[in-house]
Design a protein around this nucleic acid. Structure first.
Length: 490
RNA sequence: CGGGGUGUGGCGCAGUUGGCUAGCGCGCUACGUUCGGGACGUAGAGGCCGAAGGUUCGAGUCCUUUCACCCCGACCA
């Protein structure tokens, strides 16, 4: 059982785990490595989903749904893809059970073996490209821009709530294009959507970049990614966008006739983010009092707590609370009044802090007399007394302020823990305390592997944009065309 | 899959070299007093101690087997 740890400093991993459980986001299930996402956690996911879904649609994408099961032969068609996923697949081999001889239990009916095993999708490229083959004949069918919201299964050795579970929820976009250029543009565009979402909705600054060959998605030509820094200085890959070249089109024989009547394989991308983003949110912002949620995705933005003695005062308070509630709701703010009379207000304060509710309003007899409200913000844990007049404007701007303050705080944290290093000795010493390291690397897998072995740090990405300062690899001294980001990661 | 650890009411834990009706805190139920930062009192309910064998007059405690979960690695979104 998990030991009670409520301090980030004491043990970041245990703190994280306890927070997920105590805040009521999720819990371990009876199934190995799988998790139950509780209503509060799922509500958070739904908010992320709807924001992302709108962004996808605004960029011309549509949703579709493909089967959970993938015939084994499909997975086998793209060599690198199989190589990458074979070790972590759940496989369906039979389709029927029967009673055991003693009638007390169930067993797999050996008569009911499938001719071809079905793989529970670890990702859907293969089943989708097998389908796209039938959807694409001409350049007029392109581009094909589909997204799917789904669950996938990867039989991981070790699991952690939200960060790595055997089954997880995600979206996966799969697009087909007539040209290489257009597909690359799509992959980069969707990376931009993820960056935008992380920054403006999750209040998490991310570095956009390209993965090195060893970290690339199995079957991709290039993998683009967003990398976020957690409060222990470790990196978390928060989303990926892949330029798949013609690899899957070749594997599934998807050709189209161009305007000139020339047959060619189509160019592909795929991109995805998962419930791991919830883990990112927690590890980027939360503190020892509990979750700190950005207002734009928080399941509940404002909680109103009436402070009262007895039924009479409660009735009096309730009217004021309702008035404030409806005025906030008119501005599109989600509000709840917590008038439970069996709990003291102090207990409620602590509880909503644990759940990361961005703004708390408290109204008591004193406020009624003075026409005021006590307003507390979760991100800074500060309180102020404001007039009940124009409360909705105050709260609206406060929510916006919390949203941007959280981003700025996370950005500042990242900047304070990002180091430019040229000496490998310095790198080895500093990496022990976490952080991002901008260093030169000779571009070889050997050097990368050696650094990983010695320091547990990897190249998180080769950043896009920024200055392209040339230099010498910190380990080998060989030439380097730009600095890359090294870090330990989740 | 390697190394380490833990399984005892809903949750968190104690339980000594085997010994008597298996305890504590939180939570839960009832009543009362409280109520502007995690209240208090009184009275209750709730556990065949992860599972299966074994040793013994006697097992939460010792032995064997097994299962589950957690942490650190390797692998990964």
């Amino acid at each position: 059982m998990a030991k009670e740890v409520t301090s980030r400093a004491e043990n970041f991993s245990l703190w994280y785990n306890n927070l997920v459980l105590k805040a009521g986001l999720a819990e371990n299930s009876a199934v190995r490595g799988c998790m139950v996402i509780k209503p509060y956690g799922y509500s958070l996911w739904e908010n992320m989903q709807s924001a992302l879904d709108k962004m996808f649609k605004d960029t011309g994408h549509v949703n579709a749904y493909f089967p959970l099961f993938i015939p084994k032969s499909f997975l086998a068609k793209e060599a690198e893809h199989v190589e990458g996923f074979a070790k972590e697949c759940a496989v369906v081999t039979h389709y029927r059970l029967r009673n055991t001889a003693d009638g007390k239990s169930l067993e797999v009916d050996p008569e009911a073996r499938l001719e071809e095993e079905l793989i529970v999708r670890p990702t859907s490229e293969t089943i989708i490209w097998n389908t796209y083959k039938n959807w694409i004949q001409s350049y007029r069918d392109l581009p094909l821009l589909c997204n799917q919201w789904a669950n996938v299964v990867r039989w991981e050795m070790r699991t952690r709530l939200f960060l790595r579970t055997a089954e997880f929820l995600w979206q996966e976009g799969h697009t087909a294009h007539a040209t290489r250029k257009e597909a690359v543009e799509e992959a980069v565009k969707m990376l931009g959507v993820y960056e935008d979402f992380a920054r403006n909705w999750l209040a998490i600054p991310v570095i956009t970049g390209v993965k090195t060959a060893s970290e690339r998605f199995a079957g991709a030509v290039d993998t683009y990614c967003i990398e976020a820094m957690m409060q222990d200085g470790k990196a978390l890959q928060a989303g990926t966008s892949h330029f798949l070249g013609q690899n899957f089109a070749r594997a599934f024989d998807v050709k189209f006739a161009s305007k000139d009547g020339v047959l060619d394989y189509v160019w592909a991308t795929s991109w995805g983010v998962s419930t791991r983003l919830i883990g990112a949110l927690i590890m980027a912002h939360s503190d020892d009092n509990g979750l700190v949620l950005p207002p734009k995705v928080a399941p509940l933005q404002v909680v109103i707590i009436p402070i009262f003695k007895g039924e009479e005062e409660l009735q009096q308070m309730r009217a004021h609370c309702e008035t404030i509630k409806s005025s906030l709701q008119k501005s599109g703010i989600s509000v709840k009044i917590d008038d439970r009379d069996n709990l003291r207000s102090g207990f409620k304060f602590a509880e909503y802090e644990l759940q990361g509710v961005p703004v708390r309003l408290a109204i008591g007899p004193r406020d009624i007399k003075n026409g005021t409200v006590e307003v507390a913000r979760r991100d800074t844990l500060t309180k102020e007394i404001v007039s009940q007049e124009n409360i909705e404007q105050h709260v609206s701007s406060l929510l916006a302020d919390i949203q941007s303050n959280m981003y700025n705080k996370a950005l500042k944290f990242r900047e304070e823990h990002t180091y430019t290093v040229d000496s490998y000795d310095e790198f080895k010493e500093k990496i022990e305390n976490g952080g991002f390291f901008l260093a030169h690397w000779d571009g070889t897998a050997e050097t990368e592997a050696l650094i990983k072995e010695e320091t547990k740090a990897t190249v998180r990405c080769i950043p896009i944009g920024g200055d392209r300062e040339t230099g010498k690899c910190m380990l080998t001294g060989k030439p380097s065309s730009q600095r890359v980001v090294f870090a330990r990661n989740y």
